[in-house]
Computed example of a mutant assay.
Amino acid sequence: MCTSFFLLVSFWLMVTAAAAQTISGSITNTATQEGLPYVNIGVVGKDLGTVSNESGYYKLVFRADLANDTVRVSSLGYRTRLLTLRELLAQPNVALTPESVPLAEVLVKGKSRFRRTHTLGNTGNSEMATNTLSSNSLGSQVGTVIKLNRQPTKLLNAVFNIARSSPGQVTFRVNIYRLDARGLPTETKLLNRNVIVSSPIVRGPITVDLSADQLVLSEDFFLAIEMIKWVDAAPSGAEFAFSAAVGYSHNEIYYRKGSQALWKRASVGALLAGMQPKLSFYVTVND
C-alpha cells in the first residue's frame, strides 16, 4: 500500500533531453551592463526552461522544431522580453530594462486589526508520500493554494517541510502568486522582492521570514518554491522531496517543469474516493 501510494502522489519535474540541443548566453541589465542573477528563461507553455546563475549566465535546452515558438525572459523588477527561439539562437545575449515594481497595498485599521496568530496550510511532515523537484530542472516549481480564514491577513513567514534531499547546497526562490477567477496560479507575483534562500538541510522544516515585506492580503494565494541552484549535485542529478499527504482539503497542488512552463495540477484521480494530495507548505499569519 505504501509503495503504491508513493507512486500515485509523487512526480518528477525533469526535462526530457531526447533530440534536444543547448543554447547558452548571458542576461544583463541595460542600465549597468551587469549580469542579472536568477532570471527565468524558457519556451512559453513548454517544459523547456532554466534560470540564469549569479552572473547572469544561462544554458537552455531546446528542440529545433520549436524555432518559431516564443521564449519569455522575465525577472522581478525588469520589463519582460518576448522573442522567438530562432531570434534567441541568433542573439543569445539578452538585456532587460529595469522597471518599477508597484508596492503591495497595505490595509491596517488600527493595532487591534490583527488579533490572532495561527497557521494556514498543511503542517504535516510525513515521509510516506512526497512531491519532488530535480536539480536537472532549474526553474521548476511546486506549490499549493493557501486559503484565508479572515480578510485581511498579514503574512509572517512561510514554512516548507522537507522529507529528504540529496547531498549538496540547495538554493531556491519563494514565490507568492495571485490566483485567477478559477483559482489557478497566474504569473503575477505578490512579493515585491526576490526571496532567495540557500540551505544544506536534508530533512525537516525550512522557515522563511516574510514579516519585513508587510504583505497584507485579502484574497487566497498560491505559495510556491522554485529550484534555482544546486551546488555539488551528483552528475546524474539530485532530488529535493517535500512532505505530502492526501485528504479532503481544497489546498490544490500545482507544479511546472521549468521556467515559463504551464502550471499543471497534481491529482490522485478518483482512486482514493475523492481524496486529493496535500503538500506540506504552510504560512504563519496574523488576522
Rank of each mutant, 00 (worst) to 15 (best):
N136K: 12
K189F: 00
R256F: 03
L155K: 09
H250D: 15
R203I: 07
R178M: 11
S198N: 03
V174G: 02
K147R: 15
N194K: 09
G110Y: 11
R113F: 12
D180S: 10
G139I: 04
I196Y: 02
K257P: 00
F114R: 04
L217T: 10
K147Q: 13
A212Q: 13
S211R: 12
N192Y: 08
N131M: 13
N175V: 15
K154F: 05
F221A: 09
Y254W: 15
G124E: 00
G183N: 07
A129Y: 10
Y248C: 06
N194C: 09
E219C: 03
I176R: 02
I253R: 03
Q169A: 13
V216E: 04
Y255S: 08
L191Y: 01
I201Y: 01
S165Q: 05
P167E: 10
P235G: 08
A212K: 13
E226G: 03
P167V: 00
I201E: 05
V145Y: 03
P167N: 01
S126I: 00
S137Q: 11
A224L: 07
V170C: 01
S236L: 11
S140Y: 08
A181N: 13
Y255Q: 06
G143C: 08
N125I: 13
P205L: 06
D180C: 08
V174W: 07
F114H: 01
I253C: 01
T117R: 12
S198R: 05
Y254R: 06
S165R: 04
M227C: 15
N131Q: 15
L179M: 03
K189V: 13
E226W: 10
Q214C: 12
L138N: 00
R178H: 11
S140W: 00
T153F: 03
E127Y: 13
L120Y: 05
V142W: 07
N136I: 01
K257T: 01
N149L: 10
K154G: 09
R113G: 05
G183K: 03
T117W: 06
S199R: 08
T119M: 02
N192L: 07
N125W: 11
T123Q: 15
T132W: 04
R115S: 14
N136M: 12
W230D: 02
P167S: 10
T123R: 14
I228L: 07
R182K: 15
S137G: 03
S165F: 01
T123N: 07
D213N: 14
S199I: 09
S198H: 01
L184N: 12
T144F: 11
T119D: 11
S165L: 03
G258N: 06
G168D: 06
G237R: 10
I228V: 15
V170T: 11
G124D: 13
Q151Y: 00
P235F: 10
N175F: 04
L223A: 07
Y254Q: 07
G258Y: 06
A212F: 06
L210V: 02
R150P: 09
E187D: 15
L223F: 08
F222K: 04
L155T: 04
P200A: 04
S126R: 09
A233Y: 02
A241Q: 14
R256C: 02
T186N: 00
L184T: 08
R113N: 12
Q169I: 14
S126P: 06
